[in-house]
């Protein structure tokens, strides 16, 4: 509702003019993927960071080493298993509830304190990924809360004009969420069939090259590529060779099913890499 009693400023926001700077021009030119197409970024994972929670983990994915590009920083805490409130109906399984929240300052555009539809959607994806991994029937009548806060989103602060970037960033955030939640679940001592980890693969097109055939890269950073045609995020259980969550987005002709299959394979490969870090982190805690 507009406030009619006071003199208000203009409704539409005005955007101050931005003058092109030679310095930023140079920086923009540098932006290219320096990693090989099948290598994920380095990540740092530590469990047991929150003493009051029954399990917790912190994940940080390295920046690309350029100014203005922030990495992904996630913190996850697991509360439970604890008994359900008296009012809730009987459940033969553990009731899983997942909350994913971007910190207000994590992205280019400020987020509010209430969860928006994107964050709820991420939470649902995460729930699907984890529910396949945990052995829920060992804890009847109990609930567990998994809370992830994204302290720093994986966003390039310079590129405000790419509006479509946000939807690809969500994939990277989800894969990080899956990995960190899996570590926190292990830290809480909740039985799982396997450690689940997330991996992202994308089909990218470089306009600079004269070769028009798109190629598949693992762990993409949207600002490093000219155009992302499609991306998929996979949550994968390595020892059982099973997928608990698959999310594909993009525009792909149905005749090119090999391309799709290859993307899923690459996503699984990325997930295996992340899982290795996860296993190493967990063995370190024990030893």
């Amino acid at each position: 509702m507009t406030d009619r009693r006071r003199i208000n400023g203009p409704v539409g926001a005005t955007i101050p003019p931005v003058f092109e700077d030679t310095l930023t021009q140079e920086l923009k030119a540098v932006k290219k993927r320096s990693r090989p197409p099948n290598a994920i970024r380095k990540m740092y994972l530590k469990t047991g960071v929150t003493p009051s929670a029954s399990g917790s983990a912190y994940l940080e994915i390295e920046t690309t080493g350029k100014p203005g590009v922030s990495g992904l920083k996630l913190s996850c805490s697991v509360h439970g298993p604890r008994s359900l409130p008296r009012s809730s109906p009987f459940s033969p399984h553990m009731v899983l509830s997942t909350h994913v929240k971007y910190a207000p300052f994590a992205t280019n555009k400020r987020r509010g304190y209430l969860r928006d539809p994107i964050e709820r959607d991420l939470g649902t994806h995460l729930e699907a990924a984890l529910r396949g991994a945990i052995i829920a029937d060992r804890w009847p009548k109990s609930g567990v809360d998994i809370i992830i806060s994204i302290v720093e989103g994986d966003q390039d602060r310079e590129t405000s004009k790419f509006q479509g970037d946000e939807m690809w960033d969500m994939m990277n955030a989800l894969s990080g969420c899956i990995t960190v939640a899996s570590a926190a679940l292990a830290d809480a001592g909740i039985d799982c069939v396997d450690t689940v980890a997330g991996g992202v693969a994308a089909l990218v097109q470089e306009s600079g090259d004269d070769s028009t055939s798109p190629n598949i890269v693992v762990d993409p950073i949207p600002s490093e590529h000219d155009k992302i045609l499609a991306a998929c995020c996979v949550a994968y259980l390595p020892t059982r060779d099973e997928i608990t969550n698959l999310w594909f987005k993009g525009d792909l002709p149905a005749s090119e099913m090999e391309l799709y299959t290859k993307m899923v394979e690459k996503g699984i490969q990325a997930s295996r890499h992340a899982n290795r870090v996860l296993i190493e982190c967990l063995t370190e805690t024990i030893g």
Partner: peptide, 16 residues
């Protein structure tokens, strides 16, 4: 000419 736009896993209620 079909085009694939998106795939999502739906958490099947069978797990519950």
């Amino acid at each position: 000419n079909l085009r694939l736009l998106s795939i999502r896993t739906v958490d099947p209620p069978s797990r519950l």
